[in-house]
Write a protein that binds this DNA or RNA. Structure first.
Length: 593
DNA sequence: TTAGGGTTAG
């Protein structure tokens, strides 16, 4: 026997002892890559090994890793009598790659084939229910979890908490969570994220504090969830504290966490700190670049946003549709019309992208803010009927209002109501337009329509954090224990502003829908109350940071410019759309918002 | 004889 031949025989023996055939190794060698896997598969067919369960299992595992759900499904279907592992792999892949209905379908098939579900099955199939917000089905699975004895599995527990939270059953999520004898860090994260995603950012922070008190060590996902909660609250003090926690914990700040921190600092009004985090990243993703660009945009720093956009492209990072929304929105808020036009054109020509509704909205907004009303309206008219979504009309309406074209405004507002008749905000806008156009009879009739249809306008509120506590004010609010002092202070403040030249926006422009609201309208808007409270409670030199849920009104905008003069304070307000930095009598939005 | 739950930009 030749030496080489002998060597090969020994090799085969070794492999056999290990239970690994040449075919098996060929599959492994293909790795988690679709084409090589398919080639290996073809080879199995040729050699007649394509019925081997071990080989098909390995093939399926790698196909899952290659993220090819259709190929994974095909391999699965070629196995005559799939076992628990194969079912679990397929169900997991289906739920992981966002085919939750397939996950449920194969779960049902698993039960029909009399294969028992395991904790692995439940985690995947519960996640599928979470993606579908299928509350009843998930609750049914929850009882199956109990019956089959997997209720003590920490993976299943965390999946259940996340499922209830994502299905908007936060109370149930909390009940499940509270019953866990030793919740895993993922269970904590699920609950914290559940609060944050459902708009209960305060509760998220409270739970995070509790976690720290109990000595549970947060991981990077915990910090991501909590920093998102800070973004929502807009509280810079809180955000800085969370950032300190991250630094003290010594964990590595990965791309996801860094991006979350960038977003958090931007949304808390400190774009410089956001930039420090951005610069500390080794390698940013398109998401982190977009977050930073968007941060600049929302503060009105259009030039910086454009600079970063160009640098990003120079670094070889390909912008996606979200990046373009951020860039165009930055152009709109900074009045960079030519740049915006060329960026919009480059979407198609350079990147072969089809601009979506969001991009159209930015363009209308951009033309509108710049006073190019006819250009904006022309852009709208060129859109197809399917593209005329409410947001397009809202942007157009904002432009009409800003540039006092009330006749066009009325027309636009009527279109807006016809596309979305159930949104109370649109009626308020139309009513405002009628009032501005001097058609007070129509204002009254709109009000009656709203009452008839039971539509209520959204209540505006502002928050401000003082000494690590967040205070909430709504219009004419008298719930605060120091109400009298605040109102007294505000009255005096407005008097000083008037001395300095402030004149309230005339009564005819204030067109609140309810009589009582009108009474308080001028002086006691929530943002003014929050500013007064902030001035009373902080020492000179401290920047006031206020978050408002709606857009700031014209009168408040003008009043706060004067307040920044007479008190010599910097005031930063985040409204529904963007940031306003008030300093020495002017605002960073240059009165375009 | 293998695998899992929570997290980033509009």
């Amino acid at each position: 026997m030749e030496g080489k031949e002998r060597e090969e025989k020994v090799d085969v023996k070794v492999r056999e002892r290990k239970g690994k055939s040449a075919e098996y190794e060929a599959v492994v060698r293909a790795g988690p890559h679709l084409r090589p896997l398919q080639q290996a598969h073809a080879h199995l067919v040729v050699t007649g090994c394509h019925r081997s369960r071990a080989l098909l299992t390995k093939l399926l595992t790698l196909s899952c890793a290659a993220a090819s759900i259709s190929y994974t499904r095909r391999i699965f279907l070629s196995v005559s009598d799939p076992d628990s592992f194969l079912f679990n792999s397929l169900i997991r892949a289906s739920s992981k790659f966002r085919f939750p209905l397939d996950a449920l379908f194969f779960y049902r098939r698993m039960l029909l084939s009399r294969v028992s579900p395991s904790s692995y099955t439940f985690t995947s199939v519960i996640k599928a229910c979470a993606d579908l917000s299928a509350l009843r089905l998930g609750a049914l699975l929850h009882s199956q979890v109990f019956v089959s004895g997997y209720a003590s599995d920490s993976f299943v527990q965390a999946a259940l908490v996340a499922f209830y939270a994502k299905s908007s059953a936060l109370n149930v999520a909390r009940k499940v969570f509270d019953k866990l004898p030793q919740p895993s860090v993922v269970a904590w994260n699920s609950m914290i994220s559940g609060y944050e995603q459902n708009g209960l950012a305060n509760e998220a922070v409270v739970l995070f504090r509790k976690m720290l008190e109990l000595g549970v060590e947060p991981d990077s996902a915990t910090f991501v969830c909590v920093s998102s909660a800070c973004s929502q609250l807009g509280s810079l003090d809180l955000g800085c504290w969370v950032h300190d926690c991250v630094v003290r914990s010594g964990i590595r700040v990965n791309v996801v966490l860094a991006t979350s921190l960038i977003n958090m600092f931007s949304r808390c009004g400190d774009v410089k700190r956001a930039r420090v985090v951005f610069d500390s990243m080794n390698e940013g993703s398109v998401v982190s670049w977009t977050a930073m660009i968007s941060g600049y945009g929302m503060h009105g720093y259009g030039v910086q946003a454009m600079e970063l956009f160009h640098r990003m492209k120079a670094c070889g990072i390909v912008p996606n549709i979200v990046t373009f929304v951020a860039v165009l929105s930055a152009c709109a808020h900074a009045g960079l019309i030519d740049e915006g036009r060329s960026v919009f054109a480059s979407m198609k020509h350079e990147y072969g992208m089809v601009p979506g509704v969001e991009h159209h909205v930015c363009m209308v907004d951009m033309f509108g803010r710049a006073g190019l009303l006819s250009e904006a309206y022309q852009f709208v008219k060129e859109l197809g009927p399917k593209e005329l979504v409410p947001a397009i009309w809202t942007a157009m309406l904002g432009a009409c209002k800003m540039h006092k074209n009330f006749d066009l405004g009325v027309k636009v507002a009527e279109n807006l109501i016809s596309v979305e008749p159930e949104n109370p905000g649109h009626y308020v806008l139309l009513s405002n337009m009628y009032a501005l156009a001097g058609r007070m009879d129509r204002v009254e009739s709109i009000r009656n329509v709203m009452i008839q249809r039971g539509l209520k306008k959204q209540v505006g509120y502002s928050t401000i954090a003082v000494n690590n506590k967040t205070f909430l004010f709504s219009m004419g609010d008298k719930s605060h224990p120091e109400t009298n002092e605040i109102y007294y202070y505000l009255d005096e403040l407005m008097w000083r502003c008037k001395e300095a030249g402030y004149s309230p926006v005339p009564e005819s422009v204030m067109h609140e829908l309810e009589e009582e609201e009108r009474e308080y309208a001028l002086r006691y808007h929530s943002e003014k109350l929050a500013v007064a409270f902030g001035l009373m409670k902080t020492r000179h030199g401290v920047i006031l940071r206020i978050v408002k849920n709606l857009r700031i009104c014209e009168d408040c905008h003008s009043a706060i410019k004067f307040i920044s003069i007479v008190t010599n304070r910097e005031i930063i307000i985040r409204d529904k759309l963007r940031f306003h930095h008030f300093r020495e009598g002017s605002c960073s939005c240059l009165d375009y918002w």
